[in-house]
Computed example of a mutant assay.
Amino acid sequence: MARARSSSPTRSDVILGQIRVDILNGRLAPGSRLGFADLGERYSVSAGVLREVLTRLVEQGLAESEAQFGFRVVDVSIERLVQLTDARVAIETLVTRQAIAAGDIAWEADVVAKHHALARIGDSLFSTGITEEWLTAHEAFHASILSGCKNAYLIEMAVRLRSISEVYRCWSRPEHNRTHRDVAGEHREIMSAAIGRDADRAVELTEAHIRHTTELLISGRTAELSSP
């Protein structure tokens, strides 16, 4: 009889979470080298665990592996962000539409529950930095909507592109510091459209949510580069 797999996080899960948060908050800068010695000392972890963690980061799109050079945090640029945004809009709106068409009552309940968990945390991250708690809840909310889609390949692609896009949050000052953007309200409207089975509205809101973030990030980055 096979042993039941423990639901407790492994050492690699814990380190993966710590490194992801550090990447998304810019403490590990885009394009910076992820050396085993430096990371081992920083996180008090063995090379074996790091090898597994870095491989998983590559799979998630947060790191890159190059022959002779090892691992690096994924690099960023305005051109890459524009291309990433177009890809996300194309894939995520497709998956969202299919999810709304195929999702059942259990799917609706999960979307509502994940939104509630995210709303309870709030958007304090825009002034204090991304916390692992908010990051987990934010990913879970958007993933819950996508999960209604029956095509696992499309879901995997949408989740990976969303993961890569999170790197850009550290690229310039948080957008909330420059605008009165109601991020919580955007999430609430997306949730309502999804469980209300209004696919056209949900797709429209999802695209606006993605593109608005991109526009603000590019605006902030451009302002920083042009400042003396």
Rank of each mutant, 00 (worst) to 15 (best):
H180C: 06
E139M: 10
T128K: 03
H142D: 04
E133M: 13
L146F: 03
P174F: 00
R162P: 03
P174L: 04
H176W: 15
R178M: 10
S172A: 08
R178F: 15
E139K: 02
D182Y: 05
S172M: 01
E133P: 06
R181Y: 15
V159I: 08
A152V: 11
I145P: 08
S147G: 09
S165P: 05
P174H: 02
R160W: 13
D182Q: 12
R178V: 14
K150E: 08
T131H: 00
I164A: 12
L135N: 10
S144E: 02
H180Q: 10
W134N: 03
T136W: 00
G129K: 00
K150A: 15
E166H: 14
M157E: 10
R181C: 12
L146G: 03
R181P: 04
S147R: 05
E156S: 11
M157C: 14
T136V: 06
Y168C: 04
S172N: 07
H142V: 01
S144I: 09
L146C: 03
Y168W: 09
L161C: 01
S127I: 09
C170M: 14
R162M: 09
E139P: 02
S147D: 12
S163A: 10
M157H: 14
Y153N: 11
A158Y: 01
H180D: 09
V183W: 12
L146N: 08
S165W: 10
H176V: 04
L146V: 02
V167R: 03
T136S: 13
G129V: 14
I130C: 05
A158P: 05
A158D: 05
S163D: 13
A137K: 02
S127E: 07
E166L: 13
S144G: 06
E156C: 06
F141K: 00
R173D: 11
N151H: 07
L154T: 02
V159G: 03
F141E: 00
L146I: 04
H142W: 14
E156M: 07
E156D: 06
R162W: 10
F141C: 01
G148A: 06
C149M: 08
E139C: 08
E156Y: 02
R173I: 15
R160G: 01
K150R: 08
I130A: 04
I145H: 14
L135Q: 07
K150T: 15
W134D: 02
W134I: 08
S144R: 00
S172D: 12
E166D: 14
E139H: 05
G129F: 13
G129R: 00
W171S: 01
S144D: 02
L154E: 03
E132G: 14
E175Y: 11
R160I: 00
H138E: 13
I164G: 14
A158W: 00
E133G: 06
M157R: 10
E175Q: 11
D182G: 02
H176L: 06
G148D: 01
